[in-house]
Design a protein around this nucleic acid. Structure first.
Lengths: 210, 210
DNA sequence: TAGATTGTTAATCGATTAACAATC
DNA sequence: TAGATTGTTAATCGATTAACAATC
């Protein structure tokens, strides 16, 4: 089993988004040098990252943008069935649902769930909001593999349990709750405040040295 | 100049949040062993991270929670003036404003800005929404050091320019736009979709191997 | 052809983990 | 005291960067 380079996988969508822009401007080739300058990622790093997709560049010209985009899509399995359910239609949940079409991310949010009766039955970008008690059943029936949790933290563990029991394979957790899942379940935690401590620490440091 | 360990700084708030919970449950001491088990961070890692705050644990007992919390606050300068302005009162912006009090993050959002006249004048959690044209002026007058950008991507660079010109020192960018700032400005980019590619890649991998 | 840009191997760097003496 | 837990030094690991031959 060849080991996967998660750092590279995380960076690929950034390249993808930038390349999409270039494509819109009718450019045909991209050199890692230019990507490097704009994205602030080391040139060699980008070459290695692109290498994992199997795409080959042409010396002196760079990478053909159209085939490279396809290679990234293929490598990240954006053509596969990445249907997901989202639970919690608050601000973050709504943001994710609304962003889904113009972020090229390979994710398809097919339904939303909320416990608030005022929200149930409504649609956001044609994603319907359903009552919580349908969650488990629909995961099973629709063979959904990815669950997104954007509820208040206290509700997160219970929802995760339902998801796991119904056959979800990966959970994308936006709450600050430390969710516990069986070992075979893939869990990605998103901490909105992750970078803040570094930012404020460095700003304070700078103020002090003035 | 001793070098700062950014990885450790990013992890400290996680320890902090967990310890706060323990404190609420009237616990007085915390061992790195227990923290390690709950947070899934290596025991030695936690010891090293806590060491940068200068706090010392007691062999056989662990760290006194109350003094440790204070030490983390002090190290991360949460007592300093971390007043910030936020620009863009959409879903993400609103989420950040609403979360501000119960997330212990040392950040104080003191005003919001938006270009939508329908939003101007309103308040979210007693944070007033002001018109965009007041941004630069108020940054200067109120000596704000941190700016948060939660607008659509296309507006981000212009706002960053205004912020920089008015004296902002750190920018927390939630848009997918690659903002360019002078070298002396601290920039933290948040990519909501950062972990998604790894999640969906691993889920696809798993499905294939079934 | 000459030279720009590639892909890859080797070297460096930094972060994580292991080992262990110190100590309440 | 005995032993649990600390803080730190050394070893490992993985990711980043440098160097360079290959090639369109």
């Amino acid at each position: 089993m060849k080991k996967v380079n998660n750092s590279a996988i995380r960076r690929l969508p950034r390249y993808y988004r930038e390349l999409k822009k270039w494509q819109k401007n009718k450019r045909l080739f991209a050199s890692t040098r230019e990507l490097s300058e704009i994205l602030g990622v080391h040139e060699t790093q980008i070459r290695k990252d692109l290498a994992i997709t199997g795409h080959r560049g042409i010396p002196k010209k760079g990478h053909r943008i159209d085939t490279l985009l396809k290679a990234i899509e293929k490598f990240l399995r954006w053509d596969d069935d990445n249907s997901a359910f989202i639970v919690g239609v608050g601000n973050i949940g709504t943001a994710l649902i609304k962003h889904k079409q113009y972020e090229n991310s390979g994710l398809k949010i097919v339904a939303a769930f909320d416990s608030n009766p005022a929200k149930i039955g409504k649609s956001i970008n044609s994603v319907e909001v359903l009552p919580m008690d349908k969650l488990g059943n629909l995961i099973e029936r629709m063979h959904i593999h990815i669950g997104i949790i954007t509820t208040p933290p206290h509700a997160a563990q219970k929802i995760a349990n339902t998801m796991v029991k119904s056959g979800i394979m990966g959970i994308w957790n936006f709450t600050s709750e430390q969710i516990i899942v069986p070992e075979n379940i893939i869990l990605e935690n998103v901490d909105l405040y992750y970078g803040l401590s570094v930012l404020s620490h460095r700003v304070s440091q700078k103020l002090k040295n003035k």
